[in-house]
Amino acid sequence: MRRAVALVAGLALAGSAQAAQKLGEAQAQRSPEQVYSAVCGYCHGKNVGPVIRGRGLPAEAVEYQVRHGQNAMPAFRPTEITPAELKALAAWIQTSAADPKEHGQ
């Protein structure tokens, strides 16, 4: 599937299928796809935000956006998306292909 794109950056760290958080344990580091689906993907390519995949957006610019939250986008803090998660996510977004099911706003 399109998810294979994640491997391009070689960053599918936490093993994407099993997100399972165990009782009594804090959330482990998530893969870029997991962060995208748990956060970004609810807005981007849906009603709220523009499509951001498949545009070759520079990773540093993505990181800046996430931490600052321009205009109607809320900012996401390092407590929500860890520095390591963000680095991997930004690289993944830069190289990921567009998802035809997404539409911009």
Binding site: E60, A61, E63, Y64, Q65, H68, G69, Q70, N71, A75
Partner: peptide
């Protein structure tokens, strides 16, 4: 902004709390 890269985005700080 994005096209111009992160430096100008940071300088502008547009619509953020920066």
């Amino acid at each position: 902004l994005l096209g111009a890269g992160v430096a100008s985005a940071a300088a502008a700080g547009l619509g953020t709390g920066a």
